[in-house]
Amino acid sequence: MRNVLVTGGSRGIGIAIARRLAASGDYNVVAVARRESRELAAAIRQAQRRLHFRACDLAATDAIPVFAKSVRDEFGTIYGLVNNAGIGTDGLLATMHNSEIEALIRLNVLAPIILTKYVARHMMADGLGRIVNISSIVASTGYSGLSVYAASKAAVAGFTRSLAREVGRVGITVNAIAPGFIDTELTRSLNDEGRRRITGRSALRRLPEADDVASMVEYLLGEGGRNITGTVVTVDAGNTA
């Protein structure tokens, strides 16, 4: 059974990914979050020992090397890493507090880069691995009030492409997924009017769901994804089409 680490695995897109991978029967999933949500605890009970929770505050980047080692010591070789954890603080740049800007960049950019460093080099030593980073359509479009978030997600896309070049030779793929607006706690600040506008602008006249992103992760980790690397896959119901 291949081990997959899913960060931000207690809520939203992360728990959808963790649940789907565990249910596939092909993976042993370690969901990483600061705290185990009630939803995750319930999913773990249903997953027949294929889903586990391990606590880590990824914003405390100094603790990441030890955390990565502890997961490897406990579960063995890590086959897949899904960098999904993130915060979506919105607000006009002009009035956003500097500490909020810094916290967002720390969790959305710095943490996944450092975690990837410590996980990927063991994948390199093993000669095998799949890395999936969760970006956003906002990385390449524009949305007022999300400039800092957009910067962090564009960073993730750039990181993905160059790392794919760096580690391709040793058999590791690195891809990003750019979801459109998905109803999760992260996007709860969007009001009904905003939601209607986005839906109306989407080719399929609906919003994508967390499980659509989870399906794409499953595909990229599976046999079908073996020759896909360095790319950003959009899952947005045609919002940017």
């Binding site: 063991h122 390199m124 030593a125 030779r169």
Partner: peptide
């Protein structure tokens, strides 16, 4: 650099330490 990255990762497994971190 790739070979050194692999070396550091293997040694971390074998010796339990990564002096560069």
């Amino acid at each position: 650099s790739l070979a050194f990255a692999i070396l550091v990762a293997r040694l971390e497994d074998e010796l339990g330490i990564d002096p560069f971190t």
